[in-house]
Amino acid sequence: MFISCIRGLGRSALGVLEMFGSYGMFLLTAFFWLFGSPLKLRRVLEQIIFIGVKSTVIVLLTGAFTGMVFALQVYYALTKFGGEALLGPTVALSLLRELGPVLSALMITGRAGSALASEIGIMRITEQIDALEIMAVNPYRYLVVPNMVAAVVSFPLLGAFFSMIGIWGGYLVGVKLLGVSEGTYFGEMSNFVEMKDITMGIIKSLSFGLIVSWVCCYKGYFTEFGAKGVGKATTQSVVISSVLILIWDYFITSISL
């Protein structure tokens, strides 16, 4: 009984190690092809349109409402101690440092990450990836690298859009609806928001872009056979990416403070 328990634990540990190794090798191979061969610019642009441009509407929409509801909640809390003047910087700092990068990354994962995993997964099960290899076209260079580059480019831009529209949403609610003066909203914001806050948001978005494209490409690339396999890969890619975004967000925030 005891021995079989230990054996089971050992097997699980080996399985986890193997999985980490496989993820690591996948990323290293992608980096090798990223830096070791010319970038396929056309493919990168196609993927920027797919990951970035086509996610813009959903990111702007969620950004606006996040900023609006956040302004409502913060205003409610600030009135408890007469700190309404801090509404602008609170909304801006939260959006730039935290909500913008994280929520936009989660939205893009749901929209583009899942599609990415399923597209590559379908290519795997219908032998399209084998066809690439047979035609001596490296699948990492053709499929994985352009997606990673596109994600690393798109995520910070979309994160910035999210924060910008969120601040505007906060302005609508705070200034137009709740009566905070426009000068106070923006004036206090420029007093409190520093360049390092903006940089932090960009760094977070960059790393989220890498994480999401890495996980989604990996899951699609190693899809098991059949429609069930693609479904499983898609679901897992979204769940793992989302969880990793939140975990990595905590670590990167705690390091930077």
Partner: peptide, 17 residues
């Protein structure tokens, strides 16, 4: 290099959809 000598007709075609 050696794969460039080959052509392969897949059972299901494996066309890029």
């Amino acid at each position: 290099a050696i794969r460039q000598k080959f052509g392969y007709l897949f059972q299901e075609g494996a066309l890029f959809d």
